[in-house]
């Protein structure tokens, strides 16, 4: 059949135009904006003043941004290790043929169905509550003094713990889909050869899940870099140093905060570019370190 190039172009045009307008244009504009002094996000380009790398130097020397990056690293590393390890463990257990696996899958995934706002509010106002919270009831039942779970020292870790709880189900499902794609005859052969369950996990499951692990690391990095809602709900009135993350810093920089009228869309754009670069770097490193398996199954 003869190819009609015009027709192909016409069919592709709506998608290409939408992609250019809604994705490429904002990205390009944000990158360019990060090199200009721009007060308002919607300011006309004629009001932009070229600023070189000043916006980047400004945020790199800003204590708020540095704190937010430290918090981001804690969420990414600590939260990532626990979330991905626990979700992989759950996935392995739930694909091992235990009873009521359907129920457990649903129960572990449940927090992903509940609104994140409701979930975070439950953690802040009930589970971590000093007076009648679930954890302090447990602590006092065991004979210890009540703990201030949301003190400045503990707040970040409490927030990460709550976020892990809300995230495990999602990653568990990804791992389950990966594990279920591995042919069962590999495990049967290994069992006949005398391989234990742990040997099967480290020699069969894990190597064949490399691609899935890469995906989940990239997803987690994006989740951690765009972390916003939980931070806002753990510091509901004003941004706090203990829970500030880069996107919250970006938001406050672009729109101002309570009693803060200074706005800097250029610096906010620089934060956005830095976050994007982090995600790209993590993606590239993950690709290099975890080379996809050559195995076919």
């Amino acid at each position: 059949m003869k190819k009609n190039k015009t027709l192909i172009f016409l069919f592709m045009a709506p998608t290409v135009i939408c992609l250019l307008l809604m994705y490429v244009y904002p990205v390009v504009r944000t990158v360019i904006m990060s090199f200009f002094h721009v007060e308002s996000l919607t300011a006309s380009t004629s009001d932009w003043t070229f600023n070189g790398l000043a916006n980047y130097f400004k945020i790199m020397h800003n204590a708020g941004f540095i704190t937010s990056m430290k918090n981001f690293l804690a969420i990414w590393i600590v939260g990532g290790v626990f979330t991905l390890a626990l979700s992989l463990l759950m996935a392995v257990i739930l694909t091992s043929g235990i009873r009521f696996q359907g129920f457990f899958r649903a129960a572990i995934y449940l927090p992903n169905i509940v609104s994140a706002v409701a979930l975070a509010t439950m953690w802040v106002q009930y589970i971590f509550n000093f007076d009648y919270g679930l954890l302090n009831q447990l602590v006092t039942f065991l004979g210890f003094d009540k703990v201030r779970w949301l003190s400045t020292d503990a707040k970040l870790w409490s927030m990460i713990a709550a976020f892990i709880y809300g995230s495990i189900g999602y990653y568990m499902l990804i791992y389950i889909s990966g594990i279920e794609g591995i042919p069962t005859d590999l495990y049967e052969a290994a069992t006949i050869d005398g391989a234990t369950k742990s040997t099967q996990f480290f020699r069969i499951t894990l190597p064949l899940l490399k691609g899935i692990v890469k995906t989940t690391i990239t997803f987690w990095t994006i989740n951690a870099a765009t972390f916003y809602l939980w931070s806002k709900l753990f510091s509901p009135v004003q941004t706090e140093g203990s829970t500030i993350v880069p996107v919250v810093y970006l938001y406050d920089t672009v729109f101002g905060g309570k009693g803060v009228v200074e706005r800097d869309a250029g610096a906010g754009a620089a934060v956005g570019v830095v976050l994007t670069l982090i995600i790209i770097v993590v993606y590239v490193i993950t690709e290099k370190l975890l080379k996809s398996s050559d195995l076919e199954y």
Partner: peptide, 22 residues
């Protein structure tokens, strides 16, 4: 009085706020 006056425009304002809580 304004809301925390000039202090909330300090670059380390978020850290300051945590220190006030401490």
């Amino acid at each position: 009085m304004t809301w925390c006056g000039e202090l909330n425009t300090h670059p380390a304002w978020q850290t300051m706020k945590d220190m006030f809580t401490e």
